[in-house]
């Protein structure tokens, strides 16, 4: 953060940034007020909560892809892993969230560290293939252990969560909890982006060979991004399972992985805020489109193709570009 303060180019843009921060704060507050707007529509609040979880999930993938350029086609693996581990812990051990969630995240980080040590050393294409395979393995695991996971029927009967012994029942409380996690994760990600670590990550995405030759531990930093991404993804999964009181094997399917990728691509890879918005917009759009037609996968696939061809920077990337151009002309 402070190294940028010493950068005059960014100071020059400070007035524009002040405006941006004010706008962001406004949006953040508006998001926090959602439970008051939806008092008469409990379903809408639930959808909003799902959208917030999707946003956390999208952010978790962008931590990997946006920072290092590695594209994961199996990010649902971590989402599902988190959901099942948290659900099982809650069911079998304790419903105390402050135990369940950290344990789940740590478990995901450990698994990611072991698999990632091999995965991040591969070229991008092999990495993409292996992440897809890894998610299929996790999918298969659900069925291997169907005695405890419930197999095809999914994991049912996850008990009501407690925080420090207090049960979390109210939909509003849940929403604020999820929203708080999202804001904290986003703030942390934005901070890291501007820290030396974030810059080192960007250098890897930009030119990994050069990064290696200036003495940056490329594979180590890629692994760090992979582990953090998996941890946050598992956190999103854990929250989902505890929120819904259930987990289904669909969470681990490659459609789910595709959806997460879509959040990120739609929002613009590497923009952090874009994928968060992408996750929210997409969750609402998916709900309304799938209530209109059963063929939403066709629209989904078609939109995916269209965005990659026409707007590789994502919809928000295109809007941002237009915004910068307008600003440029205004000067």
């Amino acid at each position: 953060m402070s190294d940028l303060a010493a950068n005059p180019a960014l100071e020059r843009r400070a007035s524009g940034r002040g405006l941006l921060i004010a706008g962001a704060a406004l949006v953040a507050v508006a998001g926090a007020l959602v439970p008051f707007w939806t008092t008469g529509a409990p379903f809408l609040l639930m959808l909003a909560s799902q959208a917030v979880i999707a946003a956390i999930l999208a952010l978790s993938l962008d931590l990997l892809t946006g920072n290092t350029g590695l594209l994961s086609f199996g990010h649902a693996a971590w989402f599902g892993f988190g959901a099942y581990v948290a659900g099982l812990l809650a069911k079998l051990v304790t419903p105390e969230m402050l135990i369940v969630v950290p344990t789940t995240v740590i478990a995901a980080c450990l698994v990611a560290a072991v698999t990632g040590a091999v995965l991040v050393r591969q070229i991008g294409k092999t990495f993409a293939i292996l992440t897809l395979a890894l998610s299929q393995i996790m999918f298969a695991l659900v069925f291997v252990a169907s005695d405890i996971t419930g197999g095809e029927d999914g994991l049912q009967g996850v008990p009501v969560m407690t925080v420090l012994g207090q049960p979390v029942v109210q939909a509003q409380t849940w929403y604020w909890l999820l929203y708080g996690v999202l804001l904290a994760a986003l703030a942390a990600s934005l901070h890291i982006r501007r820290s030396p670590l974030g810059r080192a990550w960007l250098s890897i995405r930009e030119n990994a060979e050069r990064a290696r030759f200036i003495g940056i531990d490329v594979n180590g930093l890629k692994l760090l991004a992979f582990v953090m991404s998996a941890g946050l993804g598992a956190l999103a999964g854990a929250l989902l399972a505890l929120f819904n009181g259930a987990a289904s094997p669909d969470l681990l399917s490659w459609f789910e992985s595709g959806k997460i990728l879509m959040f990120v691509v739609l929002g613009g890879v590497g923009t952090l805020v874009g994928p968060v918005l992408g996750g929210i917009v997409f969750t609402f759009a998916e709900h309304y489109v799938s209530s209109l037609t059963s063929a939403w996968l066709i629209y989904f696939g078609g939109l995916f193709i269209l965005i990659v061809i026409v707007a590789p920077g994502g919809i928000f990337g295109v809007l941002g570009h237009a915004w910068r151009r307008m600003q440029g002309q205004g000067r």
């Binding site: 350029g69 294409k125 595709g258 063929a295 939403w296 696939g301 995916f304 193709i305 990659v308 061809i309």
Partner: peptide
């Protein structure tokens, strides 16, 4: 053919999108 000269990741995303599209059509 639209993305021949684009970075590798675009081709991965594109074929992935195609997989979704074809699967969606087959579902219907």
């Amino acid at each position: 053919a639209r993305i021949r000269h684009r970075p590798m990741v675009d081709s991965l995303l594109l074929t992935f999108g195609l997989a979704l599209l074809i699967t969606g059509v087959l579902y219907e």
